[in-house]
Design a protein around this nucleic acid. Structure first.
Lengths: 138, 138
DNA sequence: TATTGTTATACTCTATAACTATA
DNA sequence: TATAGTTATAGAGTATAACAATA
């Protein structure tokens, strides 16, 4: 039964949750990609463009535009990586960190609400499956 | 740990598998959205634009453009629904059915390969989690 | 009046390849 | 030569609102 395909369900869930997140964060005026980028940066660690790209799943060329907008809005800064001046380190500004914290909270809220009826084991299994799918696609 | 967020892993897995699928189906020259639409239509059942839209997770206005291209390429046909001439029924052409079958096979291949190391229980749990996320976002 | 789908608009995302700077 | 990132280009996806046809 193709409509029970894990991949179809995966895409359905992604679209649905991204729209919900964009709604909940409507005040911040962020696109799905911007939400995704900030969600990944929310831990405060700096990342190169390539590293962030592989975390969010978009190629560097696409990320450039997304980062341009985030930088123009004062949410991130681009800096040089010591020892390799080709690489660009992406970091959050103070304002970006506050925004990212709101994004992170929205993530948690949606997860908590959506997964309330699921056992911890089921969620752990789901994570493993998601990671396996991601790994297989490299 | 935010980078263990289920939602971040969800988006990562979706991006990664969609790119893999587009690669494997490169000969068909389909975009991710077209792959998603054909994957949903592959069971041969006709659907209205709204129904297909909620299955793939895109609003009708977006779907119109995707369906325009699929129709121009002779993969789908738009027909009227008996009894309600507002609705448009989307069906596969013979050629579209063959293309959809290839899409479906690629889905199965990717799933089989990616989930080889996962137990049936884990996959079932993952499906349940995906459905819960989808449901929560309605 | 409400619903279904399409149009219109403006912007964002995407792939690809060419380019610059650095290694 | 290879790598990191940006730019350029053309096309695809998106949200929103307005619209036509039908219910």
């Amino acid at each position: 039964m193709i409509n029970g395909s894990v991949l179809l369900e995966l895409q359905r869930a992604t679209h649905a949750t991204l729209q919900l997140l964009a709604q909940e964060l409507a005040d911040l005026d962020l696109t799905p990609s911007e939400i995704n980028a900030l969600g990944n940066l929310a831990d405060g660690a700096e990342r190169t463009v390539s590293e962030l790209g592989s975390a969010v799943g978009t190629p560097p060329a696409t990320l450039t535009g997304i980062l341009d907008r985030l930088e123009r809005r004062g949410l991130i800064i681009r800096g040089a990586r010591p020892g390799d001046r080709r690489a660009v380190l992406i970091g959050l500004t103070a304002r970006g960190a506050r925004t990212a914290a709101m994004v992170r909270r929205a993530f948690r809220d949606v997860e908590k609400r959506a997964l309330a009826g699921q056992s911890a084991d089921a969620v752990a299994a789901a994570r493993a499956v998601l990671r396996a799918l991601t790994e297989a696609a490299r």
